[in-house]
Design a binder for these strands. Sequence first.
DNA 1: TAAAAAAACTAACAACTGTTAGTTTGCTTG
DNA 2: CAAGCAAACTAACAGTTGTTAGTTTTTTTA
Lengths: 194, 194
Amino acid sequence: MKLKAETRKSEIIQTAAKLFKEKGYSAVTMRDIAAEMGIKAASLYNHITSKQEILKEIIISLAETFTLGLQDIQKSDSSSIKKLQDIVRLHVSIASQNTYEMASLNNDWMHLEEKLKYYLELRLNYEAEFRNIIAQGVKNNEIVNGNVEVMLFSILSTLRSLYLWIPKKEELNVENLSEQLSQVLINGINNKIN
Amino acid sequence: MKLKAETRKSEIIQTAAKLFKEKGYSAVTMRDIAAEMGIKAASLYNHITSKQEILKEIIISLAETFTLGLQDIQKSDSSSIKKLQDIVRLHVSIASQNTYEMASLNNDWMHLEEKLKYYLELRLNYEAEFRNIIAQGVKNNEIVNGNVEVMLFSILSTLRSLYLWIPKKEELNVENLSEQLSQVLINGINNKIN
DNA sequence: TAAAAAAACTAACAACTGTTAGTTTGCTTG
DNA sequence: CAAGCAAACTAACAGTTGTTAGTTTTTTTA
């Protein structure tokens, strides 16, 4: 049946993502993935067409999830600060449910072949929309009149690294972490007494 | 002569680091490195003992540079905020001079073999010292009384990602970028009018 | 329970991997 | 200019890689 095949395929992808996080795409062999599942490498090909397909499925579906999430936020008529808080929550939420896949998205995108161009489009577009939200906030006087690129880079770097850090938190409360992270990213850590 | 051999060896390491940044350690072959230098793979072995040695040299020397830099800052009797500004400058400075090597440090450390344990020690120690500086600032009331782990993670993630972003800046003024980055990381981006 | 479908298996391939051994080239120096 | 040496070369190795073909086992379905 199609449904069961989909299930087995997704098990392979999940297993692969886990190994990709540990050693990177290139260092993981089809035999590694098979061994982790307790089968032989050749058996994988009953469910997938190539190693490359696994990587593509991991990265593209995750990248599209981010893109859709950001579009929703952008459409809303919230304040710029509120939009940034929503973006933080988006990243915490996605990263917490996809810690393995996030590693491939961050570190192995360059090994995409046919889909590389499409991925780069998604990423560039994502960054441009993010930048617009910050720039709009500066115009509004909601956000301090500083270097927009530095703000974008700073926030996005932190959000993109979440997957490395979330697994170490024993109790993960998405709402709580998002709140704390927004606080730090938006208001800084300085205790301005003056 | 010893001096000339050292030079050729460091050329190999630099070439390798550049390729490692593009595709990761595992995806770069000795033949790739050789081709980039216009020689054959076997010739590399007149200067280095293994592929593994190249990675070790890249990562360990960079990690030690960070460790030494942080120790200097820690020793000083500056305020906690000033120490954080110094750490930002340390990272901007090192990252701007080692954009290739930073990629290996961030993404390929798990492929270290004999030196893996030592690397993990250095990293854990670095994070602990960084955490202490923040915690001290909280005690001082210099830093807001929030979640120290979140602050540490947020700042360190940004600093560790600098190598991805610095090459895109046409004009790189270390002092200037450090200043702007400190501003964002420490004071946030919120334009508190109230 | 028999047929069909899904999922595993064995065996093998051609290409590629890091590395070694032995040899040749070309520059430096006495 | 001859000797010595650094640095390149060719050829080859044993192991690993992704993948295919063909076959057998297991599970599902009628």
